[in-house]
Nucleic acid binder design. Structure first.
Length: 449
DNA sequence: CGCATACGCGCC
DNA sequence: AAACGGCGCGTTTGCG
């Protein structure tokens, strides 16, 4: 079922998930240590039963429409060629467009585009990353062309072409899940990574349309709605955050109303957008500078927003401080189930390293509990579907993406299976905030409704 | 030649 | 002066 080596890997990882070092020690010794560190439940109830489930997902694979994917790849190739020519015409020189160093040289030395206040990379060149280019896109016509080129090239080199190569003879791609690769307890996916397939924008839709259900099946996705914020609400027991979820209200609009001091009905799209960024940033300790950049407000305004935000969610602030203090005292953080992450830099003399460790500290209990919950749901769903003889046949688990499960389900069974899956997901872990799952169905991954 | 970095960027 | 929680990967570049 699961090999000794795998058990050793998992046990070692649970004991120190932050570091990458080869597992050491006998299984017996490791398991004793797992137990004495309060990790036995995570080990036996989550990770060990999850391993065979992951192997089943990998073996099943995700069907890809190769003819269609080939068409997209060709289309991208043509667009990339045209884009390249336009850029060289604009810069009056050919260079390697995929080299940030060469691009930086062309933009800021040759074309002398004003570069005051722009970010530099650690090697001293002016950055050409998207955020920087967005700031200067009106300073020269070539900038927009480069942004467009980057998008197209990324899609072709990272997605369409590798996927075409990796599909098996049935047109299915088989990812590998790393169960012991992350510091927080999450899974990761590689060769190919199916957890970072483009999700938003026109091209993203196009690419996702290439991921299809087998004949007679449909894809059904189950998404935990606002999972991390719900977990934060439950862990911090913040009244305002909890109340928003218990009432089933739109959390970002409520936040906006509070911060801007307007009635719910007067919340504009922009107010909601800012509140959403604040809520999102709260989970990983976003500061005023980062917030000002992301939200497009001044640093001074950003500071005000963050202050107001934490005045409203004051228990969240208190909870975060408590976690950081615990981490300082113990040298590690742990989530509700005892999953832990060592934080050697939490008392570092270097302010930068210390701040990083503090942000990791407040995020890990949330991200790590999220991981536990979806893993538990996967194990239970697999068990339930096996009991009915549907597992890997009428109802196949294709993918897990942090707060989402994607299935391929035989059409006549969709209703019945979906109810089972959703009920398990929503009830697998009791928090003082309800867990909500959004469900979508369709013939391919780009057109789920 | 292979390998490690830097950079940039896709996802949650 | 930037950076902001967690990942994997393509390309470039420098090195042995």
């Amino acid at each position: 079922m699961i090999s000794k080596d795998e058990k050793i890997k998992i046990a070692s990882w649970l004991l120190d998930p932050g570091r990458r070092r080869p597992p050491r020690g006998s299984l017996e010794a490791l398991e004793r240590k797992v137990k004495s560190h309060g990790l036995d439940k995570v080990y036996r109830k989550i990770e060990l039963p999850l391993a065979p489930v992951l192997r089943d997902i990998e073996a099943v694979g995700f069907k890809v429409n190769l003819a269609y994917l080939g068409k997209i790849s060709k289309e991208l190739k043509e667009k990339i060629n045209t884009s390249e020519k336009k850029i060289y015409k604009s810069t009056k020189q050919e260079f390697n467009l995929n080299s940030p160093a060469q691009l930086s040289e062309i933009l800021f030395k040759k074309l002398k585009i004003n570069s005051g206040n722009l970010r530099r990379t650690k090697t001293g060149l002016i950055s050409t990353n998207e955020e920087t280019l967005q700031l200067i896109k009106n300073r020269h016509p070539v900038i927009k062309l480069i942004l467009e080129y980057r998008t197209l090239f990324k899609l072709k080199s990272t997605y369409t072409d590798p996927l075409l190569k990796m599909a098996d003879d049935k047109g299915r791609v088989h990812t590998t899940f790393l169960q012991t690769g992350t510091a927080t307890g999450r899974l990761s996916s590689r060769n190919p990574n199916l957890q970072n397939i483009p999700a938003s924008g026109d091209w993203a839709k196009k690419i996702r349309r290439a991921f299809v259900a087998d004949r007679g099946y449909s894809l059904v996705s189950f998404d935990y709605s606002q999972m991390e914020l719900r977990i934060l609400a439950a862990l911090s027991r913040d009244r305002n955050l909890m109340a928003a979820f218990k009432n089933g209200k739109d959390i970002h609009s409520i936040t906006a109303a509070r911060i801007f001091g307007v009635p719910l009905g007067k919340v504009t799209k922009n107010m909601r957008r800012i509140a959403k960024t604040l809520n999102f940033g709260m989970n990983y300790g976003m500061g005023a500078n980062a917030f000002s950049r992301v939200a497009g407000v001044s640093v001074k305004e950003a500071r005000e927003f963050i202050k107001k935000h934490f005045e409203y969610f004051s228990s969240v602030k208190e909870w975060q401080e408590k976690i950081i203090n615990q981490a300082r005292a113990l040298g590690y953080v742990e989530n509700k189930n005892g999953r832990r992450r060592l934080l050697p830099d939490i008392n570092s003399q270097k302010q930068r390293s210390r701040a990083e460790a503090e942000r990791a500290a407040i995020n890990m209990p949330i991200q790590g509990l999220n991981a536990d919950i979806i893993k538990l749901a996967m194990v239970r769903v697999a068990k339930e579907l096996k009991k009915r003889g549907w597992w890997r046949k009428q109802a196949r688990l294709l993918l897990t993406i942090h707060d989402e499960l994607l299935f391929e389900i035989k059409d006549p069974l969709i209703k019945k299976a979906s109810k089972i899956i959703r009920d398990i997901m929503e009830n697998i872990y009791k928090l003082d905030v309800p867990l909500k799952v959004d469900e979508k169905t369709g013939g391919n991954w780009g057109m789920l409704k």
